[in-house]
Write a protein that binds this DNA or RNA. Structure first.
Lengths: 211, 211
DNA sequence: ACCTGAACACCGTTCAAGT
DNA sequence: ACCTGAACACCGTTCAAGT
């Protein structure tokens, strides 16, 4: 059995996915190109296709890798939820990915932890599946939504400037048509996305424990 | 003042957006092409750029048009929520769009209605903004997530077949690692996405009225 | 003012040819 | 078995030229 000397820069599915994640983080979704990826890995674009079927599969693999690494061993719903939130916040491109291909192994693991916690909370068996789904959907949906907002702000502009602008527009809307938006316009400027995420989560948890 | 005879097939932003929506509905996101759109409108691809800045703006306009048409005059949160859900269900491509560009006029209108309803429910002023955000995020996030699942199933395969497959995978998972998924595997097959959406919504509303 | 359509600068993906 | 990179079939977008 000959021991094989592996060159450290040998191509592998893992190295490809890692490089893809790095490119997505640095340059966003538009920055991930098979030509650029191949250049980074010092090979031709065709070589990648030996390890990965196509770009879609590569994006799924990248999303799964990031999420899998983010899920904590702790089962507490708030901990799991915030881990997922922070992971999507750090890798905003995952947001788009989630609304493209669901039911990935990493998502199953999140669902498993939420479900177990509901069991521990004494939730009736008939409600466990539905309520765990509500929590999972909330976590993924809201995190993705927030990532979208973060991405939509042009790299140059400050987040505060952007919120100021929208806030000003709200404050100027027709009072007959948009009384509520006018009322909360000032709150938009200073709101904390993460705290708001937790507040909504707590609302669902309150609904669960109150039942 | 000469009355001008307008040809019915004159190009306009509205006609372009309508044609784009039709192509997105028929062929999905990949089916919307400036060349195909131009052919449909019996013109060249360059003509579209006179009325629309680029593809991104066109997608935003299409999303906004569909959502604006879907929002009912009724203010009830459940009615608004289900209208949005059904609109995204009918035009799944909106799901991806929502997690790309937020804060569109149509979304403001939804937010406005939710907020007004919370005021009518007697929610404290300090909680109105946060809780309206939680509801909006839930509605958009979950609807987008469900649309993704609907789209991910290949046109040929039946939804039931797909859920059967995932259900079988869950039932076969390691009992030590995935006790919960194994328990609910059978429920996955027969669950109703829309009912589940409402159940989660009611959980949030219960949390709000219980506070 | 508005439309035309060829042309530019890219893509993802394939595949014969290499090692 | 794995890699190479030219080539194919597309894209979004631009722009000189027309009306």
């Amino acid at each position: 059995m000959a021991t094989e000397t592996r060159r450290t820069d040998a191509l592998s599915r893992e190295r490809i996915v890692d490089a893809a994640i790095e490119m997505l983080d640095n340059a966003g979704e538009g920055g991930l190109t098979f030509r650029a990826l191949a250049a980074q890995l010092r090979t031709g674009p065709g070589a990648i296709y030996w390890h990965v079927a196509n770009k879609s599969e590569l994006l799924v693999a990248a999303t799964d890798a990031v999420l899998a690494a983010a899920i904590p061993s702790d089962d507490a719903i708030r901990t799991v939820a915030l881990s997922v939130y922070d992971a999507i916040d750090a890798h905003p491109w995952i947001g788009t990915q989630l609304s493209r291909i669901p039911s990935q192994p990493a998502i199953w693991r999140i669902f498993e932890r939420i479900g177990r916690q509901l069991q521990a909370l004494g939730v009736p068996v008939t409600d466990q599946f539905t309520w765990a789904s509500a929590l999972l959907n909330y976590i993924l949906g809201v995190a993705a939504q927030n990532a979208a907002l973060a991405r939509s702000v042009e790299p140059g502009t400050d987040r505060t400037d952007f919120l100021d602008t929208v806030s000003a527009v709200w404050a100027d809307l027709d009072p007959d048509q948009y009384p509520f938006l006018r009322t909360v316009a000032s709150q938009l400027r200073d709101h904390d996305d993460r705290a708001q995420f937790v507040a909504g989560l707590d609302l669902i948890l309150a609904g669960i424990t109150g039942a």
